[in-house]
Design a protein around this nucleic acid. Structure first.
Lengths: 253, 253
DNA sequence: AGTAATCATTGATCTAAATCAGCAGGCTAT
DNA sequence: ATAGCCTGCTGATTTAGATCAATGATTACT
């Protein structure tokens, strides 16, 4: 064991963690040269796992870092003036959480683990500095933020214009695609969030989510067993959400 | 008239347009040194005014530039799979349009003028280059994008959780604040969008918008004359939208 | 293992907002 | 001017989804 620093299971400077990480093709290192990945690697802190229900940060906390999910799932949410929680997003491995804190230097949302979750902490000031040295990293960062903006706008369309069936179908297909991109099955996966959380996110009552899911199962679009979901009929599901506008969206990385 | 380039009413290289622009304190030049403002100024193209109904860009167009609104108002919208328009935002002077195009190199929305509107075109590749030289510009750009993300998330809360009264009240107070920040009256302004466009944006039917506005007028919260709006009772309006969570949001630049 | 607590499902009822429909005031184009 | 067309307003009716209520099914706790 070295005396000068304490390499841990979560942070070794001998070899690049990012290079070994199976998510590097989806995460910030995308399109970076090996030596640049190493530079990025050195500013990243691997944190110890969060247990289900633990906070990564809270609404109002001072913003210092963005976080890349390594494993598990997070939700972000606001507390409204009536004290209810409003979920603004779910985050899968390789996705970046906390970007909304840059503007005001405080996180405008809280982030909480839906299951045991590990994240890479990326101090934003270091990331900004590094983005000056590495043009492709800078561009990637702009792309990630831009992507977030257009995804959120799609979400606004969903909330403003779609009915319950379309909302739930969009949600399931969106998750399916995110799993697919990460190399998991697109047709069979486990929901890490509760029906209540799905409803909260989609602007629906729990009961409505439950009824829609039951209805989808009866019409053999999906098969459900608790939190396990299997999508049986993709083309019908896609028809439901409106293939033309959404599928392109949903299919993009 | 020079032979080497053609200075126009909209683009003079002799003096910095940005420095003279009354919006510079709100727009990208915020916090820039004079010489840096000049550098920024030189990559910006002032475009000739758009007439009401003209497009700035269309969904699917190749992304090259972001645009700062100089005067007038724009709306951005998606065309859904059913061919309906879904408005995703309204843009006032000093606000940046087109950031959602960075990711895919195509604009995922269309942008259209609601009235005679002038914009500054900012080629994004130049802006990116310049952001390497000017740290405060780079940081400002990250901030603007971050701000957009958190504003859109507030909009998601509005669409998902609020009733018709709260939606319309939030909308009016949000506009009011944007006018106030720009040095116009916070209490008295003109809506550049139709009732139909407001409803579309808020996820409400035109009739509902009309009824809510009439109701607000009857309870003396506002006074309305066509597109002219006067807010008579700010505190009641703020109570309606839920002061705690939204007002801080709405009040920020 | 056993009990409490939370989560999910289903049915009955209610309601906010959509839809349908009719009309009036402004604008544009002839 | 005048016809035709949007835009906005209001009333009547309908409906999708919320709310209320009750009961299983999972999960968490000790």
């Amino acid at each position: 064991m070295s005396m000068t620093h304490t390499p841990s299971r979560f942070n070794s400077t001998l070899t690049s963690q990012c290079q070994k990480c199976s998510l590097s093709a989806l995460c910030l290192p995308i399109a970076l040269a090996d030596e640049d990945i190493n530079k990025l690697d050195q500013i990243i802190e691997r944190k110890k796992p969060l247990k289900k229900g633990e906070f990564l940060f809270r609404q109002g906390d001072t913003f210092n870092s963005v976080y890349a999910v390594r494993s598990g799932t997070l939700k972000t949410f606001n507390i409204t003036s009536y004290g209810e929680e409003q979920i603004t997003g779910f985050y899968c491995p390789s996705e970046l959480v906390g970007l909304s804190g840059i503007d005001s230097n405080k996180y405008p949302v809280s982030a909480k683990a839906l299951e045991t979750t590990t994240v890479c902490e990326i101090p934003f000031s270091h990331l900004e500095d590094l983005s000056v040295q590495i043009p492709s990293l800078r561009h990637q960062l702009f792309k990630v933020m831009s992507r977030k903006i257009s995804d959120d706008q799609q979400m606004m369309v969903l909330l403003g214009k779609k009915n319950a069936d379309e909302k739930v179908a969009s949600f399931l297909l969106n998750l399916s695609n995110r799993f697919k991109i990460r190399g998991y099955s697109a047709s069979s996966f486990r929901l890490s969030m509760s029906r209540g959380e799905i409803g909260n996110y989609l602007g629906l009552a729990v009961e409505t989510v439950s009824r829609v899911i039951t209805r989808f199962q009866k019409s053999e679009l999906i098969h459900v067993d608790g939190k396990e979901i299997e999508i049986l009929n993709f083309s019908e599901m896609q028809k439901l959400v409106g293939v033309a506008s959404d599928c392109g969206k949903i299919a993009r990385i």
